[in-house]
C-alpha cells in the first residue's frame, strides 16, 4: 500500500506539469460548463449538454490519461526504475488507477454541480460515472500495457476513444449507427443518464454493460499476460 501511495503522490505532482494529461481532465468539464451556460435552446432536455459531454468525458479522459501515463513511463524507463525498486505491478496500477479515477470524478463532480445537478439525481449521476470511468480506466491500462511507447499508445487509444465517445452522439441522428452503438457501454451510460434515476434499467442494458465490463477486463488481463508491465 505504501508503494501505491507513493505512485499516487508522484502522479499528483507530475500531472500538474503534464499538460497533455491535464487537459484530458479539464477539457470536457470546461466545455460542458461553457455550453450549458452559453447555449439555451427552447424545449432542450434538462442537463442536455452535461449528459452528452459526460459520456464523451468517461470515454476519453480515463483511456487517454491512463494509457499516456503508462506508455510514457515505459518509454522513459521510469517504470523499470519503479519495478527495480520493488514496486509491484499491482501497486503501480493501483496508484495510477486511483489517481485517474479521483481526477475524473473531480471533473464530473465539478461539471455536474456547476450545471445545477443535485440531490438524489446527482448521486446517481456520480455513481454511474464512477462505474463508467472504471471500465475506461481498465481499457486505458490495457492500451498502456500493450503499447511499447507513447506513439504506439496514441495509435491505439484514438480509434478506441472515437468509437466509444462519438457513437452515442451520432446514434441520436442515425438509426443504423444507433443499432451498433447500443452494444457499447458508453451508449448504455448515455441512455441511463437520460432516463434518470427513476428510469427503469432493461435486462438488455444490464447484459450489455456486464459484457462490456467483462470484455474490457479480459482485454486488460490478456494484454498484461502478453506484455506484463516491464517485460524484456
Amino acid at each position: 500500500m505504501r508503494e501505491a501511495k507513493a505512485i499516487l503522490q508522484k502522479q499528483m505532482i507530475d500531472t500538474r506539469k503534464n499538460r497533455a494529461v491535464l487537459i484530458q481532465f479539464i477539457l470536457f468539464p470546461l466545455i460542458t460548463i461553457v455550453m450549458s451556460n452559453a447555449v439555451n435552446i427552447q424545449d432542450m432536455p434538462e442537463h442536455f449538454y452535461l449528459k452528452l459531454f459526460s459520456v464523451m468525458y468517461l470515454a476519453m479522459a480515463p483511456i487517454s490519461s491512463m494509457s499516456a501515463i503508462i506508455s510514457e513511463e515505459k518509454e522513459k524507463g521510469t517504470l523499470r526504475a519503479l519495478m527495480m525498486s520493488n514496486v509491484s505491478p499491482v501497486s503501480y496500477l493501483l496508484g495510477v488507477g486511483i489517481y485517474d479515477l479521483a481526477a475524473c470524478m473531480l471533473g464530473a463532480t465539478l461539471m455536474s454541480r456547476i450545471c445545477g445537478m443535485n440531490g438524489e439525481e446527482w448521486r446517481y449521476y456520480l455513481a454511474l460515472m464512477a462505474i463508467g470511468f472504471l471500465i475506461s480506466i481498465f481499457l486505458g491500462a490495457a492500451i498502456g500495457v500493450l503499447a511499447k511507447n507513447q506513439m504506439a499508445a496514441t495509435s491505439l487509444q484514438v480509434p478506441a476513444m472515437c468509437i466509444l465517445s462519438f457513437l452515442p452522439m451520432i446514434g441520436q441522428f442515425n438509426d443504423t449507427v444507433a443499432k451498433v452503438a447500443k452494444y457499447f457501454y458508453t451508449e448504455q451510460f448515455y441512455q441511463l443518464l437520460n432516463n434518470g434515476i427513476h428510469g427503469k434499467m432493461s435486462t438488455e442494458s444490464m447484459v450489455i454493460l456486464a459484457c462490456n465490463a467483462i470484455i474490457v477486463l479480459g482485454v486488460f488481463i490478456l494484454a498484461y499476460k502478453k506484455r506484463g508491465l516491464n517485460r524484456e
Binding site: I13, D14, K76, L82
Partner: peptide, 26 residues
C-alpha cells in the same frame, strides 16, 4: 542500481524524484 535505462521523472525536481523512492522504501 544505477543504469542508463532507468529513467528519471523529467517534470519533477531532483528532490521530488528522490522522494518518490524514499516514499516507496519508507
Amino acid at each position: 542500481i544505477m543504469m542508463d535505462d532507468l529513467g528519471l521523472y523529467e517534470r519533477l525536481t531532483a528532490y521530488q524524484n528522490l522522494k518518490v523512492f524514499t516514499d516507496i522504501y519508507g
